[in-house]
Design a protein around this nucleic acid. Sequence first.
DNA 1: CCGAGGATCATCT
DNA 2: GATGATCCTCGGT
Length: 182
Amino acid sequence: MRPPFEVARELLGAEIVTTSPEGSASGLITEVEAYGANDEASHSFRGPTARNKVMFAEGGHCYVYRIYGLHFCVNVVTESEGIGSAVLIRAIKPFSGVELMKERRKLSDPSKLASGPGKICQALGIDMSHNGENLISSTKIFLKPNSIFENSSITYSKRIGISKAKDLAWRIVGCGAPLNNM
DNA sequence: CCGAGGATCATCT
DNA sequence: GATGATCCTCGGT
């Protein structure tokens, strides 16, 4: 089994792409957070529910959920032998379809286009219709393996924005991304 | 059935 | 740095 922490590390630098009638857009993953077994902060901690069932599915799927009633967050589900686990994508660097992202975000500053979990979903047009998509075979949302740059500079830190199990150093930042909230 | 609170963001001081 | 927006899920009764 490949723990979410390990997958998280490999996701850095990968390209996440979405397509829609409006066009396609993509970004390079610069910041992630792992959520997994024995992790009180993970949605999967108390077992499968209607919301988190995708976390218990096969690795490589896409887990999307709504937060605070108004934002969405995207995760990559990882192999976990029945224990729901996933990697939250916290920030990306806009790569293609930048104009479309600006339009969706109603904002022109590229450094703030997708510098947070909710912003990514807005910029890429991700919503609940993407929940459960297969990130390998789907055409509306998929990942391209890391081929753009080496993960030369990587920082591990404690997670943020949560109230439980904060101490796990499962937040990974790399690729010269701005170190938000560190 | 009901209530609390959340893997956030933008805006305000 | 603090706060409000806004709604859905989960856990407890």
